[in-house]
Write a protein that binds this DNA or RNA. Structure first.
Length: 112
DNA sequence: TGTATGACCCCAA
DNA sequence: GTTGGGGCCATAC
């Protein structure tokens, strides 16, 4: 199906995890989205925090572009002294996304 | 059933 | 542009 990106809905979500997976897979290389955006795309405007829990549940060796998900401030939700931070930063740079002062320019790289 | 925690968001100062 | 406080939902104990 043609990815229902940028779709907002306020209805009950039967399998939010499944939808989040689809939306996550639908993020093209070189683009990023915020937790709230991903949740909104899945039809759950206020489930931004759930997205974080969802990503945390993902296996470490997953091939999903979890690194393209950042907070609304354009920053990585990990402490700079964390391994995850460097890993995500490295992956973003691989996608052609440049981090300025540890922040991503959402104006340029924000999907949707 | 109630409390505490989390890869968060929005708004105001 | 940055920081802090309050609020949102779901999971774990």
């Amino acid at each position: 199906m043609e990815t229902g990106n940028c779709y907002t809905a306020s209805m009950n979500i039967p399998n939010l995890d499944h939808i989040l997976l689809q939306q996550l897979n639908g993020i093209p290389q070189g683009k990023v989205v915020t937790y709230g955006d991903l949740a909104k795309m899945a039809g759950a405007p206020n489930h931004a925090r759930y997205v974080g829990s969802f990503l945390k549940k993902l296996p470490k060796d997953t091939h999903l572009p979890w690194h393209r998900v950042i907070n609304s401030q354009g920053k990585i939700s990990f402490p700079q002294d964390s391994e995850e931070f460097n890993e995500q930063k490295k992956r973003l740079e691989q996608d052609g996304i440049v981090l300025l002062n540890g922040k991503v320019n959402l104006k340029l790289y924000r999907f949707c």
